Simulated scan of single mutants.
Amino acid sequence: MKLKDKTAIITGASRGIGFAVAEAFVREGAKVAVCGSRVSSAQKAVDKLKESFPEAELIPVGVDISSSDSIAEMVKTVLAQWDKIDILVNNAGVTSAKHIFEMSDEDFDSVIRINLSGPFKCIREVAAVMKEHGGGSIINTSSMVGSYGGKMQTAYSSSKFGINGLTKSCAKELGQYNIRVNAVAPGVVLTDMVAHSVNDQMMEGMRRITPLGRAAEPNELAGAYVYLASDDSTFTTGTIIHVDGGLVM
């Protein structure tokens, strides 16, 4: 198993891509802190994982990804359980589909606060722990729109461009501590978030311009996260892996 005895924090793990990554990590032997915006949703995800992996070491954690104090408490909870953090997956995020003339300051700021400031705060907190334990792997969730933007997605695409910059800058700063920082950039994935922000016409258009001709299931992205979390990628840092059916080339 590629992640045996490794401990991982996964934010936004109660559903969608985050849940699929948690499932893949558990399958590979990791101990996983399943983090959601509410501890109740995190507990439901843990219960679901336990159905398939009854022996898995899992803890549910509720965290407000926009709050430094809440993030610090999340880290404290994980360290009390396992005494180390080997892997951080910054997956929690929100989207917003509004024309720029309809987007308020708060609309824009709230997306940046969760999608970009939140991962920065998590990295700052967790990297300090990893530094004291000889290193680790940090994986951010970016997006195809972090490469070329998106109509009606001013805030979301800006946050994902920011994630790419955060990934590369942190890789340069933290490499000296054997902390690797990479990102996975999904294309169109069949998640609840996409269902709420992309209508049928938009989905069909995305399918047409995707070389593989379809949207992805969340589990089809999980392998990229496993690779970046494992010792298979010990010389990989500052990289954005596009898992988008060939949409961005």
Results as ranks from 00 to 15, higher is better:
Met1Ile: 12
Met1Gly: 13
Lys2Met: 13
Lys6Tyr: 12
Lys6Gln: 15
Ile9Tyr: 07
Thr11Ala: 06
Arg15Glu: 13
Arg15Ser: 14
Ile17Met: 00
Gly18Tyr: 10
Ala20Met: 01
Ala20Thr: 09
Ala22Arg: 02
Ala22Leu: 05
Ala24Arg: 15
Phe25Ala: 02
Val26Arg: 00
Val26Ser: 00
Arg27Asp: 15
Arg27Gln: 11
Gly29Leu: 01
Val32Gly: 03
Val32Lys: 01
Ala33Leu: 06
Cys35Asp: 06
Gly36Val: 02
Arg38Thr: 15
Arg38Pro: 04
Arg38Ala: 14
Ser41Trp: 01
Ala42Glu: 10
Ala42Ser: 10
Gln43Ala: 05
Lys44Phe: 12
Val46Gln: 07
Asp47Leu: 02
Asp47Met: 00
Ser52Cys: 09
Phe53Pro: 12
Glu55Ile: 07
Glu55Gln: 12
Gly62Leu: 08
Gly62Ser: 08
Val63Asp: 00
Asp64Tyr: 03
Ser66Ile: 12
Ser68Phe: 14
Asp69Phe: 08
Met74Thr: 15
Thr77His: 07
Val78Ile: 09
Leu79Tyr: 06
Gln81Ile: 07
Lys84Tyr: 04
Ile85His: 11
Leu88Gln: 06
Val89Tyr: 06
Asn90Tyr: 05
Asn91Thr: 05
Gly93Cys: 01
Val94Ser: 12
Ser96Gln: 15
Ser96Asp: 13
Ser96Glu: 12
His99Asp: 15
Phe101Gln: 13
Ser104Glu: 03
Asp105Pro: 11
Asp109Lys: 12
Ser110Ala: 12
Arg113Asp: 11
Pro119Arg: 11
Phe120His: 06
Glu125Gln: 11
Ala127Cys: 08
Ala127Val: 04
His133Gly: 11
His133Gln: 14
Gly134Arg: 03
Ile139Trp: 06
Asn140Glu: 10
Met144Gln: 14
Ser147Met: 03
Gly149His: 10
Gln153Ala: 13
Thr154Gly: 14
Ser158Arg: 06
Leu166Ser: 05
Lys168Gly: 04
Ser169Cys: 12
Ser169Leu: 05
Ala171Asn: 08
Lys172Gly: 07
Leu174Ile: 01
Leu174Gln: 08
Asn178Glu: 09
Ala183Tyr: 09
Ala185Asp: 11
Val188Tyr: 12
His196Lys: 15
Ser197Glu: 13
Val198Pro: 01
Asn199Tyr: 05
Gly205Leu: 09
Gly205Val: 08
Gly205Tyr: 07
Met206Lys: 02
Met206Trp: 14
Pro211Val: 04
Gly213Ser: 01
Gly213Asn: 01
Gly213Asp: 02
Ala215Phe: 12
Ala215His: 08
Glu217Cys: 10
Pro218Ala: 00
Glu220Ser: 01
Glu220Val: 04
Leu221Val: 06
Ala222Asp: 05
Ala224Arg: 03
Tyr225Arg: 06
Leu228His: 00
Asp232Trp: 09
Thr234Phe: 10
Thr237Ser: 09
Gly238His: 05
Thr239Asp: 13
His242Phe: 01
His242Asn: 15
Val243Phe: 02
Val243Lys: 04
Asp244Phe: 00
Met249Ile: 04
